[in-house]
Amino acid sequence: MVPLSWYIILSSVMFSIGVFGFLTRRNLLIIFISIELMLNSVNISFVAFSHYLQSMRGQIMVFFVITVAAAEAAIGLAILIAYYKNNPTIRVDEINLLKG
């Protein structure tokens, strides 16, 4: 039998890799993919808890996470395209309209 903590460790490691990718990559697309990676790592822990607690709530939560992830990807990519039409770049370090 696999202990619950193994799943949690796997989930944590994948989440941290996602965070690393999100913080360090220049390519906006890969940043999006990193977000998806983080969401998925969380899903693993949800499903694992659901299994070990014999509850359905974890699985239901995963549905909602997938829904939100889909919506987020659609909107995010739409914004990316809209931005790309104006400024042909997807490098985040060239996108600094927030600069004070």
Partner: peptide, 10 residues
């Protein structure tokens, strides 16, 4: 306020 997304995220 660098305006860099990655800085804020960091």
């Amino acid at each position: 306020q660098t305006g860099m997304l990655s800085n804020y995220a960091l």
